[in-house]
Simulated scan of single mutants.
Amino acid sequence: MEFSREALIESVSSQMPEKRWKHTLGVMKTSVELAERYGGDPERAETAATLHDVAKYWPVERMREIIEDNDLSAELLRYDKQLWHAEVGAFVAEKEYGITDREILDAIRFHTSGREGMTLMDKIVCLADYIEPGRDFPGVDRIRKLAKSSLEEGLIAGFDSTISLLLEKRKIVFPLTLLSRNDLVRALEEKE
């Protein structure tokens, strides 16, 4: 089953509050802009961005069931529930929306945590989620500025912001976020 762009937007927007849909629209627009700037595929980036939060407002138990019943990353269940929607969203994108493009599915799956060896699509959607125009948190303007010249620098600043906030609140940091950040730093150091 293949969804037209309009049908996809209609279906996804119906699953979240208006405020979250406005965020999604911002991520869609920003993903297209980043794809155009950095040589990605704007249409595919927009599709990933449209679906990135599709499961965000699903009941926690429904997400837990999908993770457990489909042998998804069970490790996630040991961490903050805010991370679950990304894994579930990728599953839903494939099973309910017929997305078969692995890069789109992975960009959805890793938009909250990143991963080692992030693809261009991963970087675009993850960074767009940080810097879309509706985002307002300390340091977002610096991340936006960095994103104009480097996806990697923007992402490192974004991950640093997330990690600092979690440390400040004495929360557990998802290990993949640290690994993602370190991998980006290492890759930049190797370029120099």
Results as ranks from 00 to 15, higher is better:
108 I>E: 06
87 E>D: 15
110 F>A: 10
156 I>V: 11
107 A>T: 12
70 N>I: 07
87 E>Y: 12
110 F>N: 10
105 L>M: 12
165 L>H: 02
74 A>M: 07
109 R>G: 05
126 C>W: 06
115 R>W: 10
169 K>E: 11
111 H>K: 03
159 F>K: 03
130 Y>L: 06
159 F>T: 03
113 S>V: 11
96 E>T: 07
126 C>E: 04
107 A>C: 13
82 Q>Y: 10
121 M>P: 09
88 V>R: 11
143 I>T: 09
116 E>C: 05
66 I>V: 15
134 G>E: 13
106 D>E: 14
172 I>R: 09
92 V>I: 15
122 D>M: 06
74 A>L: 10
169 K>P: 04
107 A>E: 10
60 V>K: 15
168 E>P: 01
124 I>T: 02
105 L>K: 11
131 I>Q: 05
65 E>K: 14
90 A>F: 15
88 V>Y: 10
120 L>E: 12
74 A>H: 15
154 G>F: 02
76 L>S: 05
120 L>A: 04
89 G>Y: 10
161 S>W: 03
108 I>G: 01
167 L>S: 08
75 E>G: 03
148 K>E: 15
172 I>A: 09
128 A>L: 03
130 Y>G: 02
119 T>A: 06
114 G>V: 04
127 L>Y: 01
62 R>F: 05
131 I>V: 12
142 R>H: 04
120 L>R: 13
70 N>K: 04
171 K>Q: 12
162 T>A: 04
172 I>Y: 05
150 S>K: 08
67 I>C: 05
72 L>C: 15
151 L>A: 07
69 D>G: 14
155 L>W: 02
75 E>W: 07
132 E>M: 02
168 E>T: 07
106 D>K: 14
147 A>R: 00
81 K>C: 08
157 A>Q: 10
153 E>I: 05
143 I>G: 09
98 G>H: 13
164 S>N: 11
88 V>Q: 14
77 L>W: 10
116 E>L: 01
77 L>G: 06
129 D>W: 08
113 S>P: 02
135 R>P: 03
119 T>G: 09
168 E>Y: 01
77 L>T: 12
77 L>C: 09
118 M>S: 12
97 Y>K: 03
